[in-house]
Amino acid sequence: MTDPSPTPIVQFDALRAFISRALVRVDLPPSDAEVVAQLMAQADLQGSDGHGVIRLPQYVKRIRAGGINTRPNIRVVQERAAMATVDGDNAMGHLVVSRAVDLAIVKAREAGVAWVGTRHSNHAGPASLYARMPVAHNMIGLYFAVGNANHLPAWGGMDMLLSTNPIAAAIPAGVEPEIVLDMATTVAAYGKVKAKAKRGEMMPEGWMIDRQGKPLLDPKRSEEGFLLPIGGYKGYGLALIVGLLAGTLQGAAMGKDVVDFNKDSVTPTNTGQAILVINLEAFGEVSVFKSAVDTLVQDIRASERLPGVDRVWLPGEQSHARRQAYGEHGIPVANALVTELEALAKDLGIEPMKLA
């Protein structure tokens, strides 16, 4: 059943500060802890609650077990004018991917486009965080990643050899918010399953099935089945391609080599991600492109709606609205998660998260 208690609220800065305190306590350098905390809190700010502070206890457990390197040497190991491979040295994924995006932006300024992939990385939160980073530089961001646990079999199979393998794209606009698509190649990301379990909610039919092919609705029984791909066999094919691009191409884990970080806190995951950045200036006048995007957005929003439909949404608009609302009024956090974070704070000997 859903928790009937009032939902606690936390302000962004209080959430970020708490995450940073926790990570510093488990030996991340303060500057690295701040980068990770900022990105984790941004995940919650935009409503990606399956990838924000809910992951903190798991990260702490993994760091304590030696499964994450807190003093990494993140470095470029392969490079040409419009590409690079970044070896994360088993660092927190947020640090590795941020470094990759920064490098891709620099390269795209000169080459027009740039592909930077990672290996020996870790879970880095929602894909849209990184796809959106190039937008501030008048660039398009396309992000790909191998998920950190396999929850998807090949179409018609039962061996879970693929993950949710997300893809995200961020397209700059003018007066309109950027268009941001962030999607798993499964109907639901596994983080959403974890968030449902934390809130005491059931999953809708169509997210998961059990090993007899019947709908699986209880997120606490997720181990008894697997996620379903978007669009049937087409989603399976997309998950495979994204994994090859984000993982295999960079020498990162894919298929049976993917480590389930939900169960294994010690083994390095060798997670792979990739960012493709496209510099709008290389293709023409930036303002002309942005104006065309604005026009298309406005045409779509004003298009005739089906009966009962109040609004046609563009990809990323709801996250944009949440960032504004949560930034002003605070971020909702499930009661069960607050309890877990309070226990974590006590265990670490740090000040607990300050609620609004």
Rank of each mutant, 00 (worst) to 15 (best):
V113E: 03
H120Y: 12
H94N: 04
K107P: 05
R109N: 15
N165F: 04
G93Y: 06
A154K: 13
W115M: 13
G156S: 07
L161H: 10
W155H: 10
G117L: 01
R119D: 04
L162N: 01
M133W: 03
D159Q: 15
W155V: 02
A124H: 08
S128E: 05
D102T: 12
Y130G: 07
V101R: 11
A127P: 03
S163V: 06
G141D: 05
A149L: 12
N150I: 06
F144Q: 08
N165V: 08
A149C: 14
R109T: 14
A114N: 08
I167R: 05
A149M: 13
A111Q: 03
G88M: 05
A154N: 13
W155C: 00
P166Y: 12
N148V: 09
V113A: 08
G125A: 06
A168L: 09
M133C: 04
V96Y: 00
P126T: 09
V135I: 14
M158F: 15
V101W: 07
W115A: 10
M160E: 12
E110V: 05
I105G: 03
Y143A: 06
V135S: 11
N138H: 11
W115T: 08
R132S: 09
S121G: 14
A108R: 01
P153H: 08
M92E: 09
A91K: 00
V101A: 14
L95K: 03
D102V: 10
W115D: 05
H94D: 08
L103A: 11
L142P: 02
L142A: 15
A91M: 13
R119A: 05
P153I: 04
M160A: 10
L103N: 13
A149S: 14
G117D: 03
N150K: 00
G125H: 00
L142V: 15
P126M: 03
A91P: 03
A114S: 13
V96E: 00
H120Q: 15
N150F: 01
R119W: 04
S98H: 12
G88E: 09
A124C: 14
A131G: 11
P126H: 02
V106T: 10
N150A: 04
A114G: 12
N122G: 05
H120K: 13
L142T: 08
D89E: 11
W115P: 01
A108M: 04
K107M: 10
V96T: 01
A100S: 14
H123E: 07
G93T: 05
R132V: 03
P134C: 06
A127Y: 01
G117F: 04
